[in-house]
Simulated scan of single mutants.
Amino acid sequence: MDGIQNYLPHDVIEGILSRLPVKSLLRFKCVCKQWSATISAPKFAQTHLRRSKNSSSTILLVDLENSPEKAQLVDLETEQFRHSAVDYPVEVSVADVMCHCDGLYVLWCSDRGYALWNPSRRSYKMLNYQQYRFDHDQLMCGICYDPLVEDYNVVMADSTHYAVFHCRRNCWSDLKELNLSITIRYDVDDASGLPLKNGSIYWLRCVWGEGEVLRYEIVYFDGRDEEMKILCKADGDSFPVRMISSGECLRFFARDWDDQWVEMAMPPAAAAPAMPFGGGYAPLCWTHDGGKILLESSKDNSLQIYDVSEKSLARVGYPWNVLILHEHRPRLFPHVENVFWD
């Protein structure tokens, strides 16, 4: 170690370390105290994360009922779409990914409650809020990064209350009432909130009345004051709506009467680039590098990649059709290596 320090300044060493995979970083923490402190520092974690995002076209597939593995990481940049199995962190009968951000995932573990999972580190921590039992059937869950305090926040909310878990501090906020003036039933097709880089989390919810969808609402968590708010409302119809995020902006899609996917004009979509991939494809998720969108063809259920810069479509060779069982489809999440947390 002394020999290395004699030839290389520490900032050069830090730059080299920031380009390494998490598995190597965990080993190199044992080299010396200085390396361990560097790798554990929040600023190093963000530098490493930025580099990982710029080169990451990996997705996480979960809920694979037609596969021996429950989850897989798939690299979309490799010619054969190299994939590797990922084990859930706890021994439970049922586990479900509730939300994600920067390669971190909140799991609902039926036997033990909620857990924050980092597949890159193969580590987890339980998130059970002992003072209050959230209504799981009405749960909204999201996770985002707060750049002001260099920490991740996990937000859990049901129809009446919400609370925030501060990951690095390992503590919950006080329970807060959910004052959104909601008087009629909500239906949540996907309780997973989508984070943006400004430290906010967005959910798309249906408001029902008299057996039909009255409108859609975008509910969001404002990280600046840790309050839940309504961003906007849009008239609803009987067709499903889908929301995807690049981290920079949100996009909204719905099925029209011809069973085609069309983009909806809902803020803040105006800041997003045009994506003319046609109505015969259902948007699934955006890769972390912001350059690719995963789509499913309505013709043959094949998986397609839309390249935003090239404005081109390419069929994915990964055996997507093999994983589809009747109406069941695996869930997809953009994945990136993240060294957080100690």
Score class of each variant (00 low, 15 high):
residue 78 T to E: 09
residue 55 S to V: 08
residue 62 V to N: 12
residue 42 P to R: 03
residue 77 E to T: 11
residue 90 V to E: 00
residue 55 S to C: 14
residue 99 C to R: 02
residue 51 R to P: 00
residue 82 R to V: 15
residue 44 F to Y: 09
residue 78 T to W: 05
residue 88 Y to T: 05
residue 95 A to H: 03
residue 64 L to Y: 12
residue 64 L to N: 14
residue 79 E to D: 11
residue 46 Q to S: 09
residue 97 V to N: 02
residue 66 N to F: 14
residue 74 V to G: 03
residue 96 D to M: 13
residue 71 A to N: 00
residue 64 L to C: 15
residue 68 P to V: 07
residue 93 S to Y: 07
residue 80 Q to W: 10
residue 72 Q to C: 09
residue 45 A to R: 14
residue 43 K to D: 15
residue 60 L to V: 06
residue 90 V to K: 01
residue 56 S to I: 04
residue 56 S to Q: 07
residue 88 Y to E: 09
residue 85 A to E: 09
residue 63 D to S: 15
residue 55 S to G: 08
residue 55 S to L: 10
residue 69 E to K: 07
residue 100 H to G: 03
residue 88 Y to Q: 10
residue 70 K to W: 02
residue 70 K to S: 08
residue 75 D to H: 04
residue 76 L to A: 01
residue 49 L to F: 03
residue 87 D to N: 07
residue 88 Y to I: 01
residue 73 L to G: 07
residue 51 R to T: 02
residue 56 S to D: 05
residue 87 D to L: 13
residue 89 P to R: 00
residue 77 E to G: 06
residue 98 M to H: 02
residue 42 P to S: 05
residue 74 V to C: 04
residue 77 E to H: 04
residue 69 E to A: 11
residue 66 N to E: 14
residue 52 S to E: 05
residue 78 T to K: 05
residue 63 D to W: 08
residue 60 L to C: 13
residue 42 P to K: 03
residue 47 T to Y: 00
residue 71 A to W: 02
residue 93 S to P: 04
residue 71 A to G: 04
residue 57 S to L: 10
residue 84 S to N: 09
residue 63 D to M: 10
residue 46 Q to E: 14
residue 66 N to W: 07
residue 95 A to R: 01
residue 53 K to H: 05
residue 70 K to H: 01
residue 96 D to E: 13
residue 39 I to F: 06
residue 96 D to Q: 10
residue 100 H to Y: 12
residue 97 V to W: 04
residue 89 P to Q: 10
residue 83 H to E: 02
residue 69 E to P: 05
residue 98 M to P: 03
residue 77 E to Y: 06
residue 60 L to R: 03
residue 92 V to T: 12
residue 81 F to G: 00
residue 47 T to P: 01
residue 46 Q to N: 11
residue 58 T to R: 10
residue 73 L to R: 00
residue 67 S to H: 15
residue 76 L to P: 00
residue 40 S to L: 02
residue 85 A to L: 10
residue 41 A to Y: 07
residue 86 V to D: 07
residue 55 S to K: 11
residue 48 H to K: 12
residue 78 T to N: 13
residue 100 H to M: 07
residue 67 S to V: 10
residue 59 I to E: 05
residue 55 S to T: 15
residue 60 L to G: 03
residue 89 P to G: 09
residue 94 V to F: 11
residue 52 S to A: 15
residue 60 L to F: 00
residue 74 V to H: 04
residue 82 R to L: 15
residue 92 V to S: 15
residue 78 T to A: 11
residue 84 S to K: 12
residue 74 V to D: 01
residue 88 Y to V: 11
